[in-house]
C-alpha cells in the first residue's frame, strides 16, 4: 500500500514532476494520482496542455505547452493543481485557497506542507478571487515541491 492510499499524502515519487527548464517558466503540477471520474481541468486549459485518455484516466500535463497561467487551478474540484515556478533562489507557487480570511497582497503567511505542518514563511504576491481563489506566494526555492497550503493569521 502506498502512503497516499493510507494517509492521504502524496510523495514526490508519486508525481510526474517537470524538468528544471519547465520550472523556470512555471508550470502546473497536478497532484491527482488516483483514477476518478473527473475532467474539468482538461477543458479549462486554454492551451490544451492537459490531456486525459478518458474521464477516468489520470490527467497529464504537457510541460512544453503549459504556460503556468493557473486557469486549471480554479476549476479543479479536487484542489489538486499547483503552479510552481523557480527563479534563482525563489519559488513562486500558485495554490487554491477556500478559507477565510483571504490574505492580502504583501502579507506574510506560513507555508504548510502536505501534512499541514509549517515549513517556512512565505509572502503573498497575488490574490485572484474566483470560483476557487488562487493565491500566489513566494518562498525559498528549496520548499518549491513541499509547500502546498498556507496559514493566514
Amino acid at each position: 500500500m502506498k502512503r497516499w492510499e493510507t494517509e492521504g499524502i502524496a510523495e514526490l515519487a508519486d508525481l510526474n514532476l517537470p524538468e528544471e527548464e519547465h520550472l523556470k517558466k512555471g508550470v502546473a503540477i497536478i497532484e491527482c494520482i488516483q483514477e476518478i471520474p473527473c475532467n474539468p481541468c482538461v477543458d479549462a486549459c486554454p492551451f490544451n496542455a492537459i490531456s486525459m485518455e478518458n474521464i477516468n484516466a489520470l490527467p497529464i500535463v504537457d510541460y512544453e505547452k503549459c504556460v503556468g497561467c493557473g486557469k486549471c487551478i480554479e476549476v479543479c474540484p479536487g484542489l489538486a493543481i499547483f503552479v510552481v515556478k523557480i527563479i534563482n533562489e525563489k519559488a513562486i507557487i500558485m495554490l487554491p485557497y477556500e478559507f477565510l480570511p483571504l490574505p492580502k497582497e504583501g502579507q506574510k503567511v506560513k507555508a504548510l506542507d502536505r501534512e499541514g505542518k509549517e515549513i517556512c514563511d512565505a509572502v503573498v504576491k497575488k490574490v485572484r478571487e474566483g470560483k476557487t481563489n488562487v493565491i500566489t506566494i513566494e518562498l525559498p526555492a528549496e520548499h518549491a515541491m513541499n509547500a502546498r497550503n498556507i496559514r493566514v493569521r
Binding site: M1, W4, E5, T6, E7, G8, I9, A10, E31, C32, I33, Q34, I36, P77, G78, L79, A80, L112, D113, R114, E115, G116, K117, R148, N149
Partner: peptide
C-alpha cells in the same frame, strides 16, 4: 485504506 478520493483526503491533510 482511505475509502474516498485521494484528492479529498489530501485537501484536509494539508490543513493538518
Amino acid at each position: 485504506k482511505i475509502g474516498g478520493y485521494f484528492v479529498h483526503a489530501a485537501k484536509i491533510r494539508r490543513c493538518g
